[in-house]
Design a protein around this nucleic acid. Structure first.
Length: 564
RNA sequence: CGGGGAGUGGCGCAGUCUGGUAGCGCACUCGGCUGGGGGCCGAGCGGUCGCAGGUUCAAAUCCUGUCUCCCCGACCA
């Protein structure tokens, strides 16, 4: 490709809207152009990079035994109602109707459609197992698109779905995908770590995310430097500090004026926060919920949502607090009847906690779970924080920011049951298939590639993602010796299976070099009177900056080596 | 949706407080010089100042409303 003909415009300065390095580079290098929030046009150069990312993914999916297929983006809304996600994914779905007012959604993911397809197709255990995948556009009406390609409303996702006869077989399919993911991210030049994760709206059991650790990430990750425990903050477990041990004391009511916070209460009573029982109010699918948790801990809303099997959990607004008869600052489950109570494991184990008396200015002291109050749900709903003890080894956990690059999880039979994917086993018994699903965001992966692979001068493409293998900078092309050399070099590179971007523009040398650095192809070859004087083609490694002058054949061989 | 910021040629910005001829740098076009790290000189093209109302003799500037974009949070690949 000749740059004089390439549809591309680079920019000296990044638009003010871009904050992330990847976003700035994408715009400066002209790889993308924004159309609206969360919607981007890809220019030919950017599209080549996307296609290269897809090629890596496709290659590894195929290697792992995946079979690519294609599914409609337009889905009948009934299918989503059948799985329950028309409601649970709610606002995220783009909805529309056809001319006969039949309802559709734009696929935000494809568990429903693939389940429907597979359900219509398989009959016997002999048809299993298999893993199918698609690399397709997904649509999500995100609350906040952001970070350039990090969070889009229309994006490409590689989604793989495994179908097995049982849970142990699923373990094998899952392991194969896990291995494929490790290889994909390594090839793309993005370091990732697997972490335990919440399975979110898609549902399921075991779930791991591949996280690219970066300060610009959206997720908080908890890590144990000792045993390697790693989990998303949504999911992270930890060992709360031990409760204060004591014999059970009788409960009594005390006046505690002006103690609406745990800190005030603990100070007033002369006890530690972990000797108090904190009440936090939520609205779960519209119903009031009181969460009872030890005063030194905070509530993890994701864990709470899962414990309640609720679709939506949000803090209770004041009106609802009043309607439920709760007294902010002085509430507890003691003597409360009309509100669902969720008890964190921490308050169930602890003894003699101070708790609200459900009237202003009053608290109980020495309340005990089971004796003085009860809960409909007991679960771990505590939020892990930096410094909390690792569940496995007790080492203080660290927190880091990270970007979710991929997610693998064991779905189980939920879609098989709701949509209908059944088979007859060896005994003639009808069973639901056990599914797994495995996603990677293609554009986001490209963003991470750039986030990780750049320097002050621009992009430093990993070989497999680079839009072209070689940039050729031509200087003084009006000199015959130079044009002859280019005319020999280009076909030789192409014949070696390399892709080449030749800068034949009428620009100064400085601009061409700056652009070559910005665009970041792994190798730059300069053809100029000076290089020819020195014996041929100047070959420069974008990453190391190492430069050598080689004859055409040697330069081609060098490039072939670099791209393999 | 809550909080914060911003909308002025393709990009980066000034001008807004204190109303009065829309400006600068880059990019782009033409001419010349230069020719290995965004070079120099000259001449040009390009803007309903996000949009809609209002105040005023007069609005980029003041008032009201609205839209869009970015950042932080809640959600996801």
């Amino acid at each position: 490709m000749r740059m004089s003909r390439l549809f591309l415009k680079t920019m000296r300065e990044a638009p003010a809207e871009a904050e992330l390095a990847s976003h700035q580079l994408l715009l400066r290098a002209g790889l993308v152009s924004p159309l609206a929030a969360g919607l981007y046009c890809f220019t030919p150069l950017g599209w080549r990079a996307i296609q290269n990312v897809q090629a890596i993914i496709r290659d590894e999916m195929d290697r792992a035994g995946g079979q690519e297929l294609h599914l409609p983006a337009l889905n009948p809304v009934e299918l989503w109602e059948q799985s329950g996600r028309a409601e649970s994914m709610g606002d995220v779905l783009f909805r529309l109707a056809d001319r006969r007012e039949r309802g559709f959604v734009l696929g935000a993911t494809h568990e429903e459609v693939v389940s429907s397809l597979v359900g219509r197709t398989i009959q016997s255990y002999r048809d299993l197992p298999f893993t199918v995948y698609q690399i397709q556009t997904k649509f999500r009406d995100e609350q906040r698109p952001r970070g350039g390609l990090v969070r889009l409303r229309e994006f490409t996702m590689k989604d793989a779905y495994s179908f097995d006869t049982g849970w142990s077989a699923l373990d094998d399919s899952y392991a194969a995908m896990f291995e494929a993911y490790t290889r994909i991210f390594a090839r793309a030049g993005v370091p990732v770590i697997p972490v335990a994760a919440d399975s979110g709206a898609i549902g399921g059991k075991d779930s791991q995310e591949f996280i690219f650790l970066t300060e610009s990430g959206e997720d908080e990750i908890l890590l144990c430097s000792n045993c390697g425990y790693a989990a998303n903050g949504e999911k992270a477990e930890f060992a709360p500090s031990a409760p204060v041990e004591a014999d059970l004391k009788p409960m009594s009511k005390v006046s505690t004026p002006g103690t609406k916070t745990i800190a005030e209460l603990a100070s007033f009573l002369g006890i530690e926060p972990r000797q108090t029982n904190k009440a936090v109010f939520y609205r779960a699918d519209g119903k009031p919920v009181l969460v009872s948790i030890r005063g030194d801990l905070d509530v993890n809303e994701i864990k709470l949502k899962n414990a309640l099997k609720a679709n939506v959990v949000e803090p209770m607004d004041e009106r609802m607090v009043d309607a439920a008869g709760l007294v902010a600052g002085y509430a507890s489950a003691v003597g409360l009847s009309d509100v669902t109570v969720v008890a964190d494991a921490s308050v169930v184990e602890a003894k003699n906690l101070a708790a609200g008396a459900n009237e202003p200015g009053m608290h109980y002291v020495d309340t005990n779970y089971g004796r003085d109050w009860d809960a409909q749900v007991v679960a771990d709903v505590a939020l892990a924080r930096a410094g909390d003890a690792c569940v496995n080894c007790g080492t203080p956990l660290e927190t880091r920011r990270g970007m979710e690059m991929g997610h693998v999880f064991k779905l189980g039979t939920m879609y098989a049951e709701s949509i209908g994917v059944h088979f007859l086993d060896e005994d003639g018994e009808r069973k639901p298939a056990v599914m797994g699903c495995y996603g990677i965001g293609v554009e986001r992966l490209l963003a991470a590639v750039l986030e990780e692979n750049h320097d002050d001068n621009g992009i430093v493409w990993p070989a497999e993602v680079a839009p072209y293998d070689v940039s050729v900078v031509v200087l003084n092309s009006e000199q015959e010796a130079v044009s002859d050399a280019v005319n020999e070099l280009e076909p030789a590179l192409l014949a070696a299976g390399l892709s080449v971007l030749i800068d034949d523009r009428e620009e100064s040398a400085g601009i061409k070099f700056k652009d070559a650095d910005l665009l970041g192809m792994p190798l730059r070859m300069t053809v100029s009177p000076r290089s020819l004087e020195r014996g041929g083609i100047e070959v420069r490694d974008r990453k190391s900056g190492e430069t050598e002058v080689l004859a055409v054949a040697a330069a081609v061989a060098r490039a072939a080596r670099a791209s393999s």
